[in-house]
Design a binder for these strands. Structure first.
Length: 262
DNA sequence: ATGGTAGGTAGCCTA
């Protein structure tokens, strides 16, 4: 099975590029983040015409996660247990940042971890709490084939970011954020892109601002964590840098893993 | 020169 994750940064603005890549890459399951729409606004037809089923979770124009699969899609959940909420004012709302579904015998979670915004911002506490709660939930799934994929908004290693002084990424490089990221290893998970692609300065995101892509100034923040029974089936991984090129590109590119049959 | 772009919607937006 070929499983991919991609922060698409608005599926309505990107549907042609995404479905075109899905078909060219022969991908079976695609987890998307930042679809930026409600389910009724999602361009279903293009995916369905290409042979994919969809699970979609979006509450408004922000965040939003989805999964497209051509190997079945069942048991959809739109949050994980104890997923924290957030609100600038008023009562916290559990945002559309997690979507679980079973595809081809694998429990896939499409995840969009909060950005954090700034070190003194409540959004940073939210980010750390989100990662901690996700790890607790993930620990209970570790004995079954489970994939935690998406935009983690953490650059785990110094070599995963063009500059650790980048003001846009202060919450992506702190010891706390990095510890929260690596804690999934203690919960029984292995990050598959690193296993197959250990190279330095290998990025999955380049900010639209400041012409970061042409300058080669990016971050590696999109990942695929697999539970032990799934990780042992992995045979390869790819970061599709070419998808950052040209008109109408997302600011993130797909991360793909190959999984042998069980 | 501490910005720059992009996608949303009309927010004192978010990334």
């Amino acid at each position: 099975m070929r499983l991919a994750t991609w922060n698409v940064n608005s599926i309505r603005a990107r549907v042609d590029r995404v479905v075109d890549w899905l078909e060219r890459s022969d991908t079976d399951v695609l987890a998307m983040q930042e679809i930026k729409c409600k389910p009724e606004q999602f361009p279903r037809e293009a995916f369905e015409a290409a042979g994919y089923e969809l699970a979609i979770h979006g509450l408004n124009q922000w965040n939003g996660v989805a999964i497209a699969s051509r190997v079945g899609l069942t048991d959809v959940e739109t949050s994980f247990p104890e997923q924290p909420g957030f609100a600038k004012t008023g009562d916290p709302v559990v945002e559309a940042r997690a979507l679980g579904a079973t595809a081809g015998g694998v429990r896939v979670w499409s995840l969009y971890v909060p950005n954090g915004r700034g070190l003194a911002d409540p959004h940073y506490t939210y980010k750390l709490d989100f990662l901690a709660r996700l790890r607790e939930a993930a620990a209970t799934w570790a004995d079954t084939p489970t994939a935690l994929v998406g935009d983690f908004n953490v650059a785990p290693l110094a070599t995963d970011i063009w500059s650790e002084e980048d003001s846009e990424a202060v919450t992506h490089v702190t010891p706390e954020a990095r510890a929260a990221f690596h804690a999934f290893e203690d919960a029984g998970y292995a990050e598959l892109s690193r296993r197959f692609i250990p190279a330095e300065r290998t990025y999955t995101f380049w900010d639209y601002k400041a012409l970061r892509f042409p300058k080669g100034e990016g971050m590696r923040i999109d990942f695929v964590y697999a539970s032990a029974p799934l990780a042992e089936r992995a045979t390869g991984a790819t970061i599709v840098r070419d998808e950052r090129k040209g008109k109408g590109a997302s600011d993130h590119v797909p991360v793909v893993v190959e999984l042998a049959d069980a």
